[in-house]
C-alpha cells in the first residue's frame, strides 16, 4: 500500500472538518474522492500533503508514518499536490513555475527529461513557456499546476479538482492526461466535483460527506450506485 490514512480527524479552530476518515491508495491506482461542496475533500488533501496538522489518526506513506512530518519533507518522500484554485506562482514564467516543481530535486538530467515529458503532455504550456503564470488562462493555469506537480516526479500525485472551471473539451483533455500520467506509472489521488468523469477514470473511489467517508468501492460500482447517482451524478 502506498498511502494509508487511518482514522484521521482535523480541526479548523473549533470546527471539526474531518471526523476520523480512513482510506487507502495502492501503488498504480487512480483513486477518486468525491463529495459535495464543503464535505472536506480539500481538507483531506491538506492533511495528506501536510499543510494542515491533523488532530488525530495516522497517515502512512510507503510504510512510513508521516503524520507529523513537515510538508516540504513529504514532497521529498514523493508526495506532491497540485493545490485547489491552482496556486501557481503568478510572477514566474511557465518554465520557472515548472522549475519550482523540481525544487527538491538535484538530478539535472532527470529534471530535463521530465520537463520534456510535461511539455509533451501539455503542448499549450510549451508554446507559452516564457509567459508569466499569472497571465495564463484558467485552463492553462490548471495544466501548469498539474505539470508543475509532475516535475517533482512524485510517487503519489494529489490533484484537487483539476477540472475546475474548464470548458467541457478541456475537461476531457485533462482527464485523458491524468489517465496517461497514471499509465506512465504515477499513482493518483483525485478530488473531483465532476463525479461522472472521475468515477469513470478511477480504479476505486470514496464518497465523503460532512467529514466522513460514507461509501467506497470501485469506480464502476459507485457509478451505478443509486444513492451516488442521485446525489452526485445529477441524473434524473
Amino acid at each position: 500500500m502506498l498511502l494509508e490514512i487511518d482514522d484521521v480527524s482535523l480541526l479548523y479552530g473549533r470546527i471539526q472538518a474531518l471526523h476520523g476518515i480512513s482510506l487507502q491508495v495502492d501503488e498504480g491506482e487512480i483513486v477518486a474522492l468525491i463529495g459535495a461542496n464543503g464535505a472536506g475533500k480539500s481538507t483531506t488533501m491538506r492533511a495528506i500533503s501536510g499543510i494542515r496538522p491533523v488532530a488525530g489518526g495516522r497517515i502512512l506513506f510507503n510504510g512510513e508514518d508521516i503524520t507529523k512530518l513537515r510538508a516540504d519533507l513529504r514532497v521529498r518522500r514523493g508526495l506532491c499536490q497540485a493545490p485547489e484554485g491552482r496556486g501557481i506562482f503568478p510572477g514566474m514564467t511557465v518554465l520557472e513555475n515548472l522549475d519550482m516543481g523540481a525544487y527538491t530535486r538535484r538530478d539535472r538530467a532527470g529534471i530535463a527529461q521530465d520537463l520534456d515529458r510535461v511539455l509533451n503532455l501539455f503542448p499549450r504550456l510549451a508554446e507559452r513557456r516564457k509567459q508569466p503564470g499569472g497571465t495564463l488562462s484558467g485552463g492553462e493555469q490548471q495544466m501548469l499546476a498539474v505539470g508543475r506537480a509532475l516535475m517533482s516526479r512524485p510517487k503519489l500525485l494529489l490533484l484537487d479538482e483539476p477540472s475546475m472551471g474548464l470548458a467541457p473539451m478541456l475537461i476531457q483533455q485533462i482527464f485523458t492526461i491524468i489517465t496517461e500520467i497514471n499509465e506512465q506509472g504515477t499513482t493518483v489521488l483525485l478530488v473531483e466535483q465532476n463525479a461522472q468523469q472521475a468515477l469513470a477514470r478511477a480504479h476505486r473511489a470514496y464518497v465523503l460527506e460532512t467529514g466522513r467517508i460514507v461509501k467506497s468501492g470501485t469506480g464502476e460500482e459507485l457509478l451505478h450506485d443509486p444513492s451516488v447517482k442521485d446525489a452526485y451524478l445529477g441524473v434524473a
Binding site: 500533503s49 499543510i51 510538508a71 516540504d72 519533507l73 514532497v75 521529498r76 506532491c80 499536490q81 497540485a82 493545490p83 496556486g87 501557481i88 506562482f89 503568478p90 510572477g91 514566474m92 519550482m100 516543481g101 525544487y103 527538491t104 508543475r148 506537480a149 517533482s152
Partner: peptide, 14 residues
C-alpha cells in the same frame, strides 16, 4: 520569491 508569490504553493513544492 516562491514564498512571496504563494506561500502554500511554495510549501507544496517542497
Amino acid at each position: 520569491i516562491s514564498i512571496r508569490e504563494d506561500e502554500d504553493a511554495a510549501q507544496l513544492m517542497g
